[in-house]
Design a protein around this nucleic acid. Structure first.
Lengths: 134, 134
DNA sequence: CGGCATCCTCGACGATACTG
DNA sequence: CAGTATCGTCGAGGATGCCG
């Protein structure tokens, strides 16, 4: 059904050289699996935003997590942070080419989740009802 | 750069009807953002596996998390669980069409992370060095 | 073999207050 | 405006032992 090249991170038992902390998939996926990463990547894929704009765009994020998530995204090279020496200072976050490259793939999953949300909810409900009746 | 349709989960402030707990993206993404979900989806996209096979395939997962993650994947309709009444009993996990549909998109992100791991590590290192020198 | 029950740790995340 | 610092909570995940 799927035609894909094999991936090393599953061949744990065969490869004695394998280091779980250096697995490319875990290394890349884990930092963008946070609660807010996808949300912020999606926003910045659209256009650059200032810190306060992002806060208003995602009202239920704490400023602590906004700062931290943006830092993580910047650290992995997905986002640029530009400080303008105005008074008071303003900071703009923009997506790098690497970020756009990643997001072009990630967006397909986002799109899928919107299109198939109903099917997932249906399966979830059926599962829960089967559990309850048991 | 990216040409995409707008997504509702970002228009929080404009839409007063919006319910954060019913956001399709968070609803679908959160359960598959766990530490082991991607790993198990990848394994099962290849072929059905039995419980013990999956344990050996992913040696550093606890059987508690293996059970729980498989349950979550089953609940959302990505995985089927089939019990064979042998002695002792054997259980086979297989991927549903919905699971294959999701994974065909998710795999593109996995593939990206393998291809671009070096770039991410490079950005990470540069960022950390800039922090240290500061 | 394929679980479930229990206890525990630790890090993600939130709330609040303060600062250049 | 755009953060940092501190404290507190809560749940993901791990370790161990028991069971049909």
């Amino acid at each position: 059904m799927d035609q894909r090249a094999p991936i090393d991170f599953l061949k744990v038992d065969q490869s004695s050289e394998w280091d779980q902390d250096n697995c490319p998939v875990r290394s890349v996926m884990a930092p963008i699996s946070g609660k807010w990463s996808t949300l912020l990547l999606h926003a910045l894929s659209e256009r650059p935003y200032r810190f306060g704009e992002l806060r208003r765009l995602v009202p239920d994020i704490s400023q602590r997590m906004l700062t931290q998530t943006l830092r993580d995204l910047q650290r992995d090279g997905y986002v640029n942070r530009t400080v303008f020496p105005t008074k008071p200072p303003s900071v703009e976050y923009s997506m790098t080419p690497l970020g756009h490259s990643l997001f072009s793939r990630l967006y397909l999953v986002i799109e899928w989740s919107v299109q198939n949300h109903a099917s997932v909810l249906e399966a979830r409900q059926a599962f829960d009802e089967a559990e309850t009746s048991a």
